[in-house]
Amino acid sequence: MNYFRTALLLAAMTALFMGVGFLIGGEGGMMIALLIAAAMNLFSYWNSDKMVLRMHHAVEANESQAPELFHMVRQLAARADLPMPKVYLINNPQPNAFATGRNPQNAAVAATTGLLESLTREEVAGVMAHELAHVKNRDTLIMTMTATIAGAISMLANFAFFFGGNRENNNPLGFIGVLIAMIVAPLAAMLVQMAISRTREYAADRMGAEICGNPIWLASALGKIAGGAARVHNPDAERNPATAHMFIINPLSGERMDNLFSTHPNTENRIRALQELAGSMGGGGGGYSRSSGADYASSAPQARGPVGQGTSRSDPPGPWGRSRRRDDGSTGGSPGGGSGRNGPWG
């Protein structure tokens, strides 16, 4: 079904791309758009993940640069029976994250520095588990390729404003066709993105909670990320709105609707579903309890309990391996009895 859904969606996006070409240049424009779409589908299959990472200035991190985050992703990937994905960091104060890649063998997870700074270790684990769920469900290919083609449709629609009104271009609908290309085509592309994104987020929430072992960790993270995304502007996301559906929470400003035009399900609904899941799991496996000596690098991947237990709810957020000043003015070490070494990005 994943492969069928991918083929169906790409066919719809290709047809939409051809339709814009027809409205701009008639049959000739449609054939040119078909050739461009075919080339773009092939190119985006192999390179769309790199393009998205480049759009958001993501930098690949290794184990020495981001030891705790790297170890966390490694253990979560083992629990999910996935190959170790590449880990990327985005120097952006907005808390957010996304996954990309054409298959689990070529996957990558990206987290902003704002996410690592504002969330606790357990909450970050919930977020990374959610992104790995997208990888395991093979959502990343369809989400990344859709972002690439939707962006191209928007660009082509903008070209319609300059070239679509020329009578010599065989536009069958004249100025009306130009308006359709400019307004309807990008809207249709956005709706196709939303159709896949909103349904897959709930599935990734559930599987991510199972991977990390505690739905409450992800529920708590979603609340914090939603609040941070509403307060902190993300210039890269605003410049590339076609990639918004890839993030765990919508990174665009002014997007708080949960209706036909929302790229993500309502955050409160997602949190409520995770809380219900936690109840069915018997309280979520005992998250937030303190357990000295447990960390992401050493605990067994086959363990059935929550990953990375080691902090209480009152522990301050990351960077986790660095001493931080608490609200009462005292200085706390890293969660779980860490050694106070560098934070998750070095």
Rank of each mutant, 00 (worst) to 15 (best):
V20K: 02
F43W: 14
M30V: 13
I24R: 00
L35V: 15
S48A: 15
G19D: 04
E27H: 13
A33R: 01
A38Q: 10
G25W: 02
A33Y: 05
D49F: 13
N62I: 11
A39T: 13
V59Q: 08
F17M: 07
H56K: 04
V59K: 05
I24V: 11
L42V: 14
V20Q: 00
G29K: 00
A61W: 09
S48R: 02
L23I: 05
I36D: 06
I24A: 04
L35K: 06
A37R: 01
E27Y: 10
E60V: 14
K50P: 11
A33N: 02
V52K: 00
D49Q: 13
A37D: 06
A38I: 11
I32Q: 04
G29S: 05
M31F: 15
N41S: 10
F43E: 12
G25T: 02
G28P: 07
A39M: 14
E60H: 12
D49G: 13
M31P: 07
M40E: 14
N62M: 12
G26F: 07
G29P: 04
A38N: 09
I36Q: 12
L34D: 06
V52S: 03
A58F: 08
M40G: 10
F22L: 11
F43N: 08
I24Y: 02
F17C: 05
S44F: 08
G19E: 05
G26Y: 03
N47T: 15
L53M: 07
G29C: 05
N41G: 07
G21W: 00
M30G: 11
H57C: 12
A38E: 10
D49R: 07
D49P: 13
G25L: 02
D49V: 09
L35M: 14
G25A: 06
N41T: 11
M40D: 12
F17P: 01
A58H: 01
E60W: 09
H57S: 12
L23K: 01
D49C: 12
M30N: 04
L23A: 07
Y45M: 12
S48V: 10
G25F: 10
M18C: 10
G26M: 07
F22K: 00
A61V: 15
H57K: 06
M51G: 11
I32K: 01
H56I: 08
D49L: 12
K50E: 14
G19K: 01
V52Q: 06
A37E: 05
S48Q: 07
